[in-house]
Design a protein around this nucleic acid. Sequence first.
DNA 1: GAACTAATGATTTTT
DNA 2: TCATTAGTTC
Length: 724
Amino acid sequence: MDVSHILDSLNARQREAVSAENAPLLIQAGAGSGKTRVLTHRIAWLNQVVGLSPFGILAVTFTNKAAGEMRARVEELLGMSVASMWVGTFHGLSHRFLRMHWKEAGLPQGFQILDSEDQKRMVQRSIRGLGLDESHWPPRTAMWYINAKKDDGLRADHIRDEGDPTEQQMIEIYKAYETACNLAGAVDFAELLLRTLETLRNNEALLQHYRQRFQHILVDEFQDTNAIQYAWLRLLAGDSGYVFAVGDDDQSIYGWRGARVENILNFSDHFPDTKTIRLEQNYRSTSTILNAANALIENNSNRLGKNLWTDIGEGELITFYSAYNEGDEAKFVVERVMEHVAGGGQRAECAILYRSNAQSRVLEEELFRHAVPYRVYGGMRFFERMEIKDALAYMRLLSLPEDDISFERVVNQPPRGIGDKTISQIRNVAREAGVSLWHACAEILSANALKGRAATAVGNFMKLIIKLRADTKDLALDKLVEQTIKDTGLLEHYQKDRSEKGEARVENLQELIGAAGMPVETPQDTPDISELDAFLANAALEAGEQQGNEFDDCVQLMTMHSAKGLEFPLVFITGMEQGLFPSQRSIEESGIEEERRLCYVGITRAQQKLTLSMAEHRRLYGRDHFNTTSKFISEIPAELMMEIRPRLNVSRPMPSPVRRQSIREDNTTGLSVGQRVMHAKFGEGTVTDYEGQGAHARVYVNFEEAGPKWLVMAYAKLEIMNVA
DNA sequence: GAACTAATGATTTTT
DNA sequence: TCATTAGTTC
């Protein structure tokens, strides 16, 4: 059989990995060394050469995006659909397993998934239920504790009581939380994994079935696996399965959320006869960039060790700029971006990276000032929005009225006269009887324990849900959403809010109808899960895209963490300051090796040109910081770097208006200086300046109430006022 | 029930 | 510094 299409495009190491004999394989894939390519080609190899059915392959990743890409690339390579192959995230695959084996797992058939926000509310409820003071026992902390334990595979009963009163209390909260989740048929993210693991462990027949089925297990980003994910892999692989693990210990940047680099370092101890293959040829960056990255990471101990190389050529030197303050730094970066664009480059080729999200603000302001379109990664995702979660909560109640989190969320949203007093009464009954809030309501009503108005309100709410469920039983999903947001009054409620925010919420709700109209991909082996439950699970597991931008060609702003896996011709790493990057906390406690790996990740995102910058003086969280240069700068060989000295006038806080007016451009705003205008939010004002062209045209308006502001014509919806 | 006020907390993020 | 959120008031 001709296998050239699988191997031809690969280098020697990649071929070795793809065509390796059956054995545990550890592929140390450096940044930009083609790891996704190796993974997908390995799957193709297993299928077309070894003759393994897609049915026998399990491929697991961390993000939905990575899973989607992998499936698409395999299908492209094989020229066929591989729906029977299990490709997905640890959570997604566990979810699939639990839907199929809910009985064995001891879950209700319609179990719901809690996202982090739901989980926090649930923990909060448990804390309140125990009569504890929330300020002393913050839900965040308790949630963090519970997740850390679950990620280590520990139930509340498993935790050894060392006599520490704080820990004892945490264990109590954990227990109460477990009870509440079981009652509500709710499963949090960590629970998906833990429950799957336990179900397999306690059910020999199931375990044997899956071990036999999945002879080959492929793992992406192996350095990011935590204890339970590793246990999951080992259990499934058993003694007869082959794990093909691809990862890079130098890119392990999620230790703080439980990832264990040891999983990579000790892989060969756990899987006998492991074959290790290193992919060190980099297809992304210039040798200057790679040499900088190599030199930097050399400073870490405890590595498996590897050296990236390329035949792309030296390319440009790395630029380093030490700015006077963060404003100056932003100005410098944006100027470089604008130069690139002026030279015919795309904005989307530029990525501005930073350590913490708080740093994006100044950069955004500077980009906005110059009307450079940009996109910030890491905002609120679609299915996390308040109005969307409200609608979903109603839908969840339709599916499973015992879902207490959803019940509490919408029982008085929109307001229908069920106040705190009534709710806490319901809660008490529920707690005493050990039933869900929904059942508690029914009991209270039949016992006539509520007074007039409250009783009617609660009764009406229950009737609403029951009627809605009956009415929508046979409806298509999008119609169901539509009817839900109408009949519950949710849509009307948000329509009353005439502000921009309210309008956006109404739009989002309408978009939800649209989203429900799209078919949700249900795996063929997932049995009788309703269309509604599939949609709800999907919403929790895949929170959707972050908000896009109306401009396609945007400068990309993101943290170095979110940049992992991406690449850009031009990369700017800002805030190269001791105490910020590496962060103060990492210097003091967690050790800075992970910070250095993060820096390594940042550097290796760059294809052609890397620019580093710092601010000697930075205001962060209302405090002034006087910074020294990041240690990491000194770890990059000086001959790879060129330092740019600040110009004399850069530290001036604001450009003088005189200067702006001296370089006049055509006025395309349609308004003239001196024109009186009206803005929906800021009120009346006078136009005093303008700049920019076309879609980016802006005017400077001095508002009576709100003060002077720059407004983009395309968005501001200014009303021209006639002089009285 | 909306509208104001005070308190809080703040690396990094996915599921 | 500043955004979110919980609490308070009318």
